[in-house]
Amino acid sequence: MRRRQDLFRWVVVTLTLVFFGLPLFSMLEFTTRDSAGHRTAATWSALADFGVISTRYPDLRAGFLASVGLAVLTVVVMLVLLVPTMTWVRLRLPGLGRTVEFICLLPLTVPAIVLVVGLTPVYAWVTYFLGGNAIWLSFAYVVLVLPYAYRSLDAGLRAIDVRTLSEAARSLGASWTTVMLKVILPNLRTAVLSASFLAVALTLGEFTIASLFSRTNLQVAMYLIGKSDAQISIAVGLASLVFAFVILFAMSFVGGARSATSPLARLRRNRKELT
């Protein structure tokens, strides 16, 4: 019984790894090939040198920087918007809880491509007031991460006694700002971290909205460069995949025995749980 299961597992896992590994290996093979068919590390050494990237592929540099900025701004806006609101609703307006939850989960039924259609007039105004910088895409990305962020923050708030904590702080003379920053936020550390991680992951992988609004982020830059220099864009793609994998794999150990799944796995599971 046990032996048969082991055999079954190894056969399935090996086949899967071949299935998933083949394209990844092909990417590596493709990027280490010169025009005569010999092995060369030229693409990768170009990629490792930020100076070369900046001069030869300005799009890639712009896209990379834009994506980093987008990730930061998305996380900040998401936290500033959700943490105080969700805490406040819990404390003072419990009747609104269902409404807030419904609104936060709504984006799950709206594909990104549909959001683009609806956001077109809104972004005409954003561009009018704030200019056409790619970083303002964060406003749309916050909407995309809303369901996942809501789920993890909700779980975090559920685990602490918000009311007692804030009443204790208030009766000791703390202002609402102090309550937020020094009492609630530190207690939500884990939830805030996982919500932020999801936001970063989603932002770095986003293509649809940026591409259709003609803003350059990392994914769009890869796509654009792919048209002229396939090798460098495939190398960037492979590098970011490996980078993301290493982070997830490392974090699955940090997460401890509580859960063997990665934060991204939890993201999908959250999605599953949310109904």
Partner: peptide, 8 residues
């Protein structure tokens, strides 16, 4: 997790 999320 990586493949499902970063696909694209």
């Amino acid at each position: 997790g990586v493949l499902a999320q970063f696909g694209g």
